[in-house]
């Protein structure tokens, strides 16, 4: 589904990302871990064509992302609060995204109804604009908005940060379900090793912009990751 070849990103002379080759098959739940500055967000930004690669390219379902925009209809993401429109209520925001993705109001409502327990009564009908919600609730809204319109690729940057434990557990179930039963390719990054190993079939460790581990998740993975990050 997603093929990365000879990708690099330099800022001035500093090489922040260099990936020779990485391919993520369709329906895989893919986890990206690494310390701050490892290049996780840079990789996701390149994948969304928000920054330009210095060399190489990423193709998403055979569409080279910085050459064509045809990847947009089947790809969605929540990276940070710049993906939220602060002056809209959560409902208006969902409908807006829905309209952009060719979903009418009842389609969106049907999707939202599946996430009632995820929202925990704090998102819908609150008479609040997104900018006035807490960081955690903003994140919930952003993540659900990324699920609107049956995307085939979903990119979530640090989805577990700022969420309460209950929501973290629910989110894990949602992500697993997307990859396993709906065949969606899900890419997440996280600092929480436990969550990633719970959710992802495959985990890639980035360090200073390079892939240094590429693991298929099993019982030993968490131990291995913990050992890796403790020295």
């Amino acid at each position: 589904m997603i093929t990365t070849t000879n990708l690099s990103k330099k800022y001035n002379d500093a090489l922040v990302l260099h990936i020779e080759s990485l391919s993520i098959p369709k329906g895989q739940s893919f986890g990206l871990v690494g310390n701050n500055g490892a290049g996780k967000t840079t990789y996701f930004s390149l994948l969304l064509d928000l920054i330009q690669p210095t060399t190489g390219e990423i193709s998403n379902n055979d569409v080279v992302v910085n050459k064509s925009e045809d990847w947009k209809p089947f790809t969605s993401a929540f990276i940070d609060e710049t993906f939220l429109i602060g002056y809209l209520t959560p409902e208006e925001y969902f409908y807006f995204i829905g309209e952009l993705r060719g979903q009418n109001k009842s389609d969106v409502d049907a999707l939202l109804s599946q996430f009632e327990d995820f929202f925990h009564g704090e998102i819908l009908n609150q008479k609040k604009y997104l900018r006035d919600l807490s960081k955690g609730n903003q994140k919930k809204a952003g993540i659900v908005a990324a699920l609107i319109g049956h995307p085939e690729v979903i990119i979530l940057d640090e989805p577990f940060a700022n969420l309460d434990p209950t929501t973290q557990i629910r989110l894990k179930a949602i992500i697993k379900d997307l990859a396993q039963t709906k065949g969606v390719t899900v890419l997440v990054s996280s600092h929480d090793l436990l969550h990633v190993t719970d959710v992802c079939e495959r985990i890639v460790v980035l360090e200073k912009g390079q892939i240094i581990k590429d693991l298929a998740t099993n019982e030993a993975t968490l131990k291995e990751l913990e050992a890796h990050f403790s020295n």
Partner: peptide
């Protein structure tokens, strides 16, 4: 500007 990355990654 505050949500430009959203617009740029949407199919608009």
């Amino acid at each position: 500007s505050s949500y430009y990355p959203l617009l740029m990654s949407q199919n608009i």
